[in-house]
Amino acid sequence: MIGALMLDIAGTQLTQEDIELLQAPQVGGVILFGRNIESVQQVRTLTNHMRHIRPEILIAVDQEGGRVQRLKQGFTLLPAMGRFGELYLSEPQKALEFAEQCGWLMAIEVLAVGIDFSFAPVLDLNDVSDVIGDRSFAQNINDIVILASAFLKGMKRAGMASTGKHFPGHGSVKADSHIAAAIDSRAYAEIHAKDMQTFIQLQSQLDALMPAHVIYNQVDPNPAGFSNFWIQKVLRQDLQFDGVLFSDDLSMQAACVAGGADARIRAALQAGCDMGLVCNDREAQRIALAGIADFPLPNQERLEKMRGKIPDIRVGEDLNLGAEWQKVRDTITAFRNSTLPN
């Protein structure tokens, strides 16, 4: 059974403490960070060990491309999604082709090392937010929808579930919710007409969503990930979204409004999230785990849809995933290294 807590580990292999935590019933997932990555072979050995300890565990990573890419050594360095938006202005067909290829390439490499899914893509607008910026595909809704749809098609072809983030939109908020409270004072009608449209128009292609740690204070006093209004009324009732809802990292500063780690994960789950992430703080993970020990396990059928099509292969120190992979890798690498015309 899959539990409701996703946590991380400190190093490149499991410690006895990690193993004991993975065996807790309410632990359902592990997210990998750069410090957990040493080589292609090492990552696959690590994920195999995790599944030996806990076969049903879901393993995730942030492999967006650009400045948010955890798997680097031995993997293709991916462009930021904003590069596709730039190319789309002059060569739309090529931009769509490259976006789909990049989605497939990202996914096939992540799956090859035993990771179920990347928390991708970012569907926020590239507006005023410094923390979003070129993680977004573009500055307008139509371009984001078209390019993200292509990227999602590539992910799906590789066998990876998708997670759109950060609902209902983080791009119009200046503050970085990792280090500060993020507040958006716009009315619901404006948020719905602008930022939410990328999520609404793409929801049929999404397997999961990640709500933003943003307080939309004209709508609800709680951050979206702790909000019954945003999760139960808007997502589940109005939009009829039935995919997985992952909280953003509950150790982020903007999540601290809910109290300690136990209060934060309870608030996220009670609002309707299926799984809460607590990262980079082992003591907080223990507190969160104790705080939900008596909670019912989350919707298993929903979470099972996040399981990736992981190939039964042995990987060496270097990836070698076939002729199509090599061709696409060369194309995307050349694009990443190119200079677009002004």
Rank of each mutant, 00 (worst) to 15 (best):
D220R: 07
P223G: 05
I59K: 04
D195P: 05
A112K: 00
Q101S: 14
L89M: 11
L206T: 12
Q139I: 13
G29I: 04
A112I: 05
K305W: 03
A284Y: 01
F98R: 06
Q42H: 05
V214W: 02
N142Y: 09
R67F: 12
N337D: 14
D184W: 04
D143H: 13
Y216R: 02
D18P: 01
Q23P: 09
G322F: 01
I53T: 14
K165S: 06
N222T: 07
A334K: 10
L46A: 11
K156Y: 09
R307Y: 04
G308L: 03
V315P: 02
D242C: 03
A181S: 13
D281M: 10
A161W: 03
K327Q: 14
V68L: 02
L202D: 04
I215T: 15
T76R: 06
L209C: 00
K94A: 14
G66R: 03
N222P: 03
L206C: 15
A267C: 10
A60Y: 08
L123V: 12
L14Y: 11
N140A: 08
A193K: 06
T15A: 08
A255S: 15
Q253P: 00
A138Q: 00
M1W: 09
L340F: 11
Q26H: 13
V219T: 14
N342G: 02
M1I: 14
G259A: 07
A161I: 11
Y88Q: 07
L71P: 03
E190P: 00
P311Y: 09
V219Y: 03
Q300P: 04
E301T: 12
S162G: 05
F137D: 00
Q13V: 05
Q69H: 09
N142R: 07
S136T: 09
I287Q: 10
M160T: 09
A24G: 02
W230H: 09
R54Q: 15
L289W: 06
S129C: 10
W230P: 01
A158W: 03
A255N: 04
V257K: 02
S251M: 12
D8P: 08
Q300F: 08
N140D: 15
K305R: 15
S247K: 07
V113R: 01
Q26V: 13
W325V: 08
L235I: 08
V128T: 15
T339M: 11
G159S: 13
S177H: 13
V257F: 00
K174Q: 13
E109M: 05
N299E: 06
I215W: 04
